[in-house]
């Protein structure tokens, strides 16, 4: 509780004088990111929905990357992960990241396979 707060974000690009100004700074950053997400979600620019990168729409890549950025700052600054020891950080983050990536990969590949089965075979629609 009493330990020091690290007051730099963006790898030292922005430094805050106190923990309270850092909190408001991170809030401002998260708000900007959310506003961008909502703006793109409402307008859905053609150029981002028509073009794909690695089988996914560019727009969806942007959403997912921005979400991970937001998640990073919530965990690192609001949940004070920046101030924890390396061991605690790794035991929390690596476990989660590894298991979630594995699960998502398996389930999405399987879902895509079933889509192909429905599309190319005799089973039409099954709920």
């Amino acid at each position: 509780m009493a330990h020091e707060h690290k007051l730099e974000i963006f790898r030292g690009l922005v430094k805050f004088k106190s923990n309270i100004t850092k909190i408001w700074g991170v809030f401002l950053f998260l708000s900007i990111v959310t506003t961008v997400e909502v703006y793109l979600g409402i307008t859905k620019p053609e150029i981002l929905t028509q073009n794909r990168f690695m089988a996914m729409k560019i727009l969806n890549w942007i959403f997912i990357i921005l979400t991970l950025v937001k998640a990073y700052y919530i965990i690192w600054d609001f949940m004070h992960h920046r101030d924890e020891t390396k061991g605690l950080r790794r035991s929390v983050v690596w476990t989660g990241v590894f298991l979630i990536c594995y699960l998502v990969l398996i389930l999405l590949i399987e879902g895509d396979y079933i889509f192909d089965v429905y599309k190319n075979n005799y089973v039409k629609f099954n709920f």
Binding site: V104, I114, Y118
Partner: peptide, 16 residues
């Protein structure tokens, strides 16, 4: 993430 990934599974299953 189990819930959200299974949402993704069902969505990929009926992606069209």
């Amino acid at each position: 993430s189990g819930f959200i990934a299974s949402y993704g599974f069902s969505r990929f299953k009926f992606i069209d």
